[in-house]
Design a protein around this nucleic acid. Sequence first.
RNA 1: GGCCCCUUCGUCUAGCGGUCUAGGACUCCGGGUUCUCAGUCCGGCAAUCGCGGGUUCGAAUCCCGCAGGGGUCACCA
Length: 475
Amino acid sequence: MTVKTRFAPSPTGYMHVGGIRTALFAWLVARQNNGRFILRIEDTDKNRQVEGSIEHIIQSLKVLGLNYDAGPDKPGPEGPFKQSERLNIYHEWAKKLISSGRAYADPYSKEELDAFRKQDDANHHPFLYRNHRPEITPNWEYQVLPLRFKAEPKAYSWHDVIMGDLSAGEEAVDDFILIKSDGYPTYNFAHIIDDYEMQISHIIRGQEFIASTPNYLNLYEALGFAPPILATPPPVLGPSGNKKLSKRDGAKDILEYINEGYLVPALLNFIASLGWNDGTTKELFSVDELIQSFSLERVGKSGARFDERRLLWMDGAHIRNLTPDDLDAMAKPFWPPEAKDYDQAYLHKVLLLVQERLKYFGEIPELTRFFFSDLELNPELISANSKLSALDKSQLKGLLEQAQASLEQSDFSLTDLSFRLNSLLEATAQPAGILFSLIRIATTQAPASPPLAESLELIGKERSLARLKQQIDAL
RNA sequence: GGCCCCUUCGUCUAGCGGUCUAGGACUCCGGGUUCUCAGUCCGGCAAUCGCGGGUUCGAAUCCCGCAGGGGUCACCA
């Protein structure tokens, strides 16, 4: 069987982690089976559409590398890929259902339906439309009346690759709307037609559709379609509480993570690990490794909470694994403006020094500032250091002057710097905790930096000495 | 409320009848790494497996109840 999966979002806004996970799973299944991955836009609700969201979705998938084989902007035999452009197809199938007696026009007004609901409610009866089927139905007038499916109620049990064996009684099957009065199909109808027409092999979608699966099964039968393989991952939960991650609760646009400097492979690794693992203790996966090891069968059934601290760790771990070339390339957009004056070789050295302390690339400016521009003296750095603040100013000054004298003789090669700094330790009879801290503060004016000698080497002789002098003068 | 589903350290999870006095990872806490931060290494805290009954020689693992949580009951997807 040819594996063909699809990601079928409705264009109602940006994409957050939950949506991306669905897309990722579908993409992984397609790629590991040499199958096809399709992007289909479910734009059948004109009221909920958000301007620009199709482009936003496309952009998100593109940035994440979840490339699709066909979609709205990439022609393929399955097209068109926007449901709004497939209206005639749904119409054709609707007519078939009418002629086979499995669909009928719904003559009731909203008020009448509400009355039925109230009535059933009062009788402690679950509301089912099919209990109120009109005796005689009018002819279906396209774009005037909604078209309903005529269900053949029965109990169903079915298999879900992730959720296992599921079942529901016949009360879960009802006459649902196929085509709305505006002529657009409902999701319930459109996706079934599309998945059939596009020969989708696996439907991977959120849990909110489990409850209506019996309806879909009933419709597949009426249509004579074999249902695709079903896989419904559990929801991604928000950081606090048990609620499903949602835009309302501040779920971030996935592109925000990209803009903050999170690595794509780390993001995908993290998102995949929300509910999935390969059964070993392996935590870090490259995208290729994900493609190799992913399996829907190993996706858990319970919702996974989104924990940004874990993402942070994972991103740092991926950054540390970057090759020097990739590091340069990925870091490019994140340099502070001051870095413009420096050549690539210098930037590269800076990067190697901070690579292992980066959690995400957005931290580059604050971690590297002193390699590019001189900053104002920050007296707090000394006063906040208990060892340094225990000494008086003349002592500090004396230490810095000794350092200055020695470093003036240095060629600022790493070996010479290391040698001189070590000698200084002996000459001043000070522990590194005092001497090195002091020099480090004077030359970086930062609460933290890479190791002293390495930092000084990059900052260079002229600037290092100037900064020492600045600190001495200030004491 | 009806129906469906879920429930292992704070979090992500391993586990599919005995190897579990429940393993790994994140976080947190100690210690090493000639300064800081990070990393790294070593060590530690942390789940009596939601609760209660069974079945079994033996259950986190099977069965039944209960509780809690989630989903769904639209001319939304």
